[in-house]
Structure formats: C-alpha cells, structure tokens
Nucleic acid binder design. Structure first.
Length: 572
RNA sequence: CGGAGCGUAGCGCAGCCUGGUAGCGCGCUUGGUUUGGGACCAAGAUGUCGGAGGUUCGAAUCCUCUCGCUCCGACCA
C-alpha cells in the first residue's frame, strides 16, 4: 500500500476526550473515529488489526473443533421473553420496534438465538457435541462507555456456544475452549493470565476470565507466587487453617470516642493498629434483609462473596436511615453488642480477642471485646477481599500477588439454564429426553487489540506485535524527489509485495521528521529507511520499532531479510 | 441515575464575568526556499459560536428550555 493512496489521518495532538493510552493512540494513529458515545468507526488502518485478531481467533476456534456461523443482530423479543431475560436484562438491552410494532432488541449476546437454532435442528445425542461460534457486532447500552474500544456500547465480539449431552461432555468442551483461548492470546504476543472468576447470577459451576495484564486494567486479580492459582479478586478465596480463638484477657469497657467515626480515626484515638479493631457494616440484601457484617478493621468486604453466601442477587451498604434505625446510632458507631439482627463475621475475626468495636451510640466504642462472651455471631465465613500477601488457598506455602487486568475473554459453563428455559432437549441413547448442557465463551475483539496497545507502546506511539500490526513493514523514502532514493524504495516495495509481505510505502513528499514521527506513532514493527546517506554505500537502514535497534542492510538483500524477520516474528 | 464540567474552523483552545464587525496555534490550499526526527517565507480558504425560544437597538457573551459529549460514583454477559 502506498501512503499517498491510503487514508491514514494521524493526529499530532491527543484528542481531549481520550483517557487511556490505547484510546489516545488509536485516535492519533487514525485507527478509529468516534461517531457517538461508545460507538466508533473502524478506519482502514485500525480495521487491519481488527481483522487480524479475528483471523487468529477463527483459526484457533476451528482448530478446537468449533464451527463458524453468523447470527442476526436484530433479535425478536419473543425469544428473550422465553428465556426471561427480556425483563431481567434491564436498560443495557437496546430495544426497538419494527414497522409492525413488534418488539426487537439488538443482541448483546446470543444464547437465545443459538439455543433456538439448536433446539430446532439437533434432536439426537448423535449430533453432539456441537460448538458454534460467530464473530459479530454486539450492542450493550452501557451506563458509562469509556476508554475507546475498551468499553464501547457497540463492539465486535467472538461468542461461542457449546452443546453437550452431559456434564462430562460440557467439561471437555470447556477444557478445549480454555486451551484455544490460551493459544489465541499467546499468538497475539500478550502477557495474560487465566483467572478463576465469579460465575455470577448465571450460576455455572466454573468460569475463567482471560486477563491481559495492564496498569490501566479495570479488574483486580490475584495470583499465587508458588502455584498456578489465579483469580479475580471478586472470586479469590481465602482459607484459614486451624483458627483458634485466643482466650480473653481484657474486660469489656465502654469508652468515649467523640467524633471518631472512621476506623483510622478510632484506631489513632485508642492508640491501636486498625487490625486490632473489628468493624461492623450494616448491609442490606436485594431481598431487603438487613444484617451486620464483621471484618477486621483493616479489611474490605467482598460484596460478591457475601451475596453468594446469602444466596441473594446482591448486597449493598445500608443507607444512613437504616443504620440509625437498627443500631440506634449514626453511621460510624455500629457494633455487634446488643444488635437484634443477624451477625455474619469474616473467618478471620474468629482468631481475634480483646478487640474494639462500635458502641451503637453516638461517640461510644467498646474495648476489650471478645467473641461469645460479649456477643454471638451466627455465622463465620470467607467474606473479605483478598489482598497481596494473603496465603494461597490452593497450596501451602504460596502468597498472593496482585495485578491489574483487562478482561479480554471469558469462558463459562452455563449448564442447563437456557436449554431448560427454552426447552432445548435431545434424545439420549436410551431414548430419554435430556436438556442440553451448554457452555459459552466470549472474546472482545476490539478490546483485545486495545489491550495489546496498552501493553505495547512507548512515549512516541504504539508498537503492536507482528501478528496484530496493521502492516508488517514500513518502507520510508526520506526524500521522494531524489531519483535514486525513489528508485531503490520502489524496488524494495515491489520485492516485498512479491514476497507476500504486508508493506506500507511512505511515498509522501514530507520532511523526514514528519515521516519518522508518524512511523513511531503508527508503530509498524519493522521500518526500512531509504535515505541518501546510506544509499551511497548501497545500504538501507532497518529499525525495529519495539526495541529501537537499528542496523544497516545491503539494498540487494533487504527484502529477503525483512521477509525472514516477519516470518520469524509471526511464529515466535 | 446522583455529582462535576464542557460544546466557538478538521484538531487543540482563547473570547463569555463587564453585550457592540469571531480570534490564536496546529492542520488545509497555492507559490517559493528547504529535505535524516513534527522547517521557513509569502498569499489564501474554512464558522448555523450545539439547537430552540426569550431579554435587548444589538447576543458566542445575559435568561429559559433542550440536545450532545466528558470525568467521578453507582452499575456491568
């Protein structure tokens, strides 16, 4: 491709509304343009990366035995009513009516459509196992789209759905997808982790998220420094071995703590570490139950763990009025002593004695508090957020480390939720009708490209790895008006095309500075500079974008050498 | 949906408080000089000042309504 015949509108300045690096660079490198909040056009240069990502996914999915199809964006409400999600999905589901006033939605995911197809076409266990996937544009009317392609409303996603006769088959399908995902992200040259994730309301038995490690990641994950364990903090379990409650040595004492509402303030006031305090949170469940939760002073509640424990959709911190009503004191002085509601404590609290708690009255706390003697806990459980340094729940000597990650893929076992709701059954070998056991597997295509940029950039621009780069080689003619330079550049360009290398020829009549700045910005992995200086000696200059290393190549060998480097980088 | 802010040339912004002929930098066009890290000179083009209504002799500027966008929070297969 010749630059002068291409559309590659680079921006010298960073657009004001781009917050994260990948968004800024994708805008500046002319890869995307915003059309509306969370909705982008893929410009030619950006589309090339997107297509490469799709192709890698396609190849690995096919290799894993999945079959590509393409489902409609417009979904009839009927199907969504059948699964119950027309009501449940909420405002994120973009709904509309056709000319006959029939309700439709734009598919944010396609369990309903695929299940409908399978129930109508798959009747026998002999047709199983089956794994269908598509790469398609989805729409979710996110409350708050942000970070460019990272969290758009309209986005390209690969989604796959597996169908099996039984759990065993479904587990095997899951395993194959897990491995395919590892292959995909490995091929993209990404540093990533597969982490255990909360399967949420879907209630599957297991679920993994694929996280690209990046500072700007929206998710916090932990991993063990000794074994393979890794999990989203939402999910990360904590295990206490042999907890014993120490004997009480202190007397229960009421102390005045004027205006000391936060754990920090109380700890400083009482001159103890926050870890010697027990904090009491008043929470409200989605079923409107109010209960008290005890945590060590320096810990955070993991609301998802608590919701799962209580088997409710979600839990929230209670509003001030509710706190006042249940404890008799404003927020900041809640304590377990004398409370009439259910008290749930984090397991860690079981190992504490002689601690301090709120007094359920303005400006009052208790010290020398002990379990059992002073109040009762109805249940101890793992409900706090994991932090770095916590012991690994899987091995004996590992400690947890924490990272930020961008969720680029999610695999999960669905079970029979949709097949039962939508009556998707097959006959087994005994002639008995059984609901299909399903799994679903997503990859955010645009998000993965964005994540790759987050992981591969410097102050001058992006440096996408070879498999995702829009072009493999940039041939930059320093001065197109110089006949010798022009001739040499054109010759190499032609040779590279003949060798099947994806090459962009910068044939613009611009000053070298502009060309080099643009080259760094758009980050094509290999840059060949053809300039008078080296050409006199019969050489051209190679610069590797990512490492910055430079070398001279004889003009005659340049094309072949570049091809070799491209192939090597693709097969790394 | 709660809080904050912004809409003025393709991009980045000033002007608004205190109403009076719409500006700057970059980019763009033409000509010339220049050519290894975002050059220089000269001449030019480009605006429903987000939209509607109001106040006023006169509104980018003041008032009301409205639409869009961004950030923080809540939310998130």
């Amino acid at each position: 491709m010749r630059y002068t015949q291409y559309l590659l509108p680079t921006l010298k300045e960073t657009p004001a509304d781009a917050e994260v690096i990948s968004h800024q660079l994708m805008m500046r490198a002319g890869m995307i343009r915003k059309v509306a909040a969370g909705i982008y056009s893929y410009m030619p240069f950006g589309l090339r990366s997107i297509r490469k990502m799709e192709q890698i996914i396609r190849e690995e999915m096919n290799k894993a035995g999945a079959i590509e199809c393409l489902l409609p964006m417009a979904n009839p409400a009927e199907l969504w009513q059948e699964s119950g999600r027309w009501e449940k999905y909420g405002k994120e589901l973009l709904r509309f009516k056709d000319r006959k006033e029939t309700d439709f939605c734009v598919g944010p995911t396609h369990e309903e459509v695929i299940t409908d197809i399978v129930r109508n076409t798959v009747k026998s266990y002999k047709q199983l196992p089956l794994n269908l996937y598509q790469i398609q544009t989805k729409f979710r009317d996110e409350i708050r789209p942000r970070f460019g392609l990272m969290r758009g409303r309209e986005f390209i996603m690969k989604d796959a759905y597996s169908f099996d006769l039984d759990d065993e088959g479904a587990d095997s399908a899951y395993g194959k997808m897990y491995q395919a995902y590892r292959n995909i992200f490995q091929r993209c040259g990404l540093k990533f982790r597969a982490v255990e994730a909360d399967s949420g309301a879907i209630g599957g038995s297991f679920s993994h998220e694929f996280m690209v490690l990046a500072e700007s990641g929206e998710d916090a994950i932990v991993s063990c420094d000794a074994c393979e364990y890794a999990a989203n903090v939402e999910k990360a379990e904590l295990i206490y071995r042999d907890i014993e409650t120490p004997a009480a040595t202190a007397e229960l004492q009421k102390v005045d703590t004027p205006e000391q509402k936060t754990i920090e303030a109380v700890a400083t006031f009482l001159n103890v570490e926050p870890s010697r305090l027990v904090k009491t949170l008043i929470v409200q469940t989605s079923d409107d139950e109010v209960l008290a939760v005890l945590l060590r002073g320096d810990r955070e509640l993991n609301e998802i763990k608590l919701a799962n424990l209580l088997e409710v959709d979600r839990v929230l911190l209670a509003e001030d009025a509710v706190v006042r009503q249940t404890t008799g004191a404003p927020t900041g002085f809640a304590g377990p002593i004398g409370l009439k509601i259910q008290v749930i404590a984090d397991s860690e609290v079981q190992g504490m004695a002689d601690f301090a708690v709120g007094g359920n009255a303005v400006d009052v706390h208790y010290t020398g508090v002990n379990l059992a003697r002073d109040f009762t806990v109805s249940r101890f459980a793992d409900i706090r957020q994991a932090v770095p340094g916590d012991p690994c729940p899987r091995c004996t000597d590992g400690k947890l480390e924490s990272w930020r990650g961008i969720e680029v893929g999610h695999v999960f076992k669905l079970g029979t939720k949709y097949s039962e709701a939508m009556n998707a059954t097959v006959l087994d070998a005994q002639g008995k009708s059984r609901p299909l056991v399903m799994g679903c597997y997503g990859i955010g295509v645009g998000r993965t490209v964005a994540a790759a940029i987050e992981q591969n950039h410097d102050e001058h621009g992006m440096a996408l790895p070879m498999p995702l780069a829009p072009f493999q080689v940039l041939v930059s003619m320093v001065n197109p008006k110089d006949a010798a330079i022009r001739e040499a550049s054109e010759s190499i360009y032609q040779q590279l095309l003949d060798l099947g290398v994806e090459v962009l020829l910068d044939d613009r009549d611009e000053r070298p500075g502009i060309k080099f700045k643009d080259a760094d910005l758009i980050g094509i992995p290999l840059r060949l500079t053809v300039g008078a200086r080296n050409l006199k000696e019969g050489n051209v200059e190679l610069k590797v974008r990512a490492s910055g290393e430079q070398s001279l190549l004889p003009l005659a060998d340049a094309a072949r050498e570049l091809q070799r480097l491209v192939v090597a980088a693709l097969n790394r």
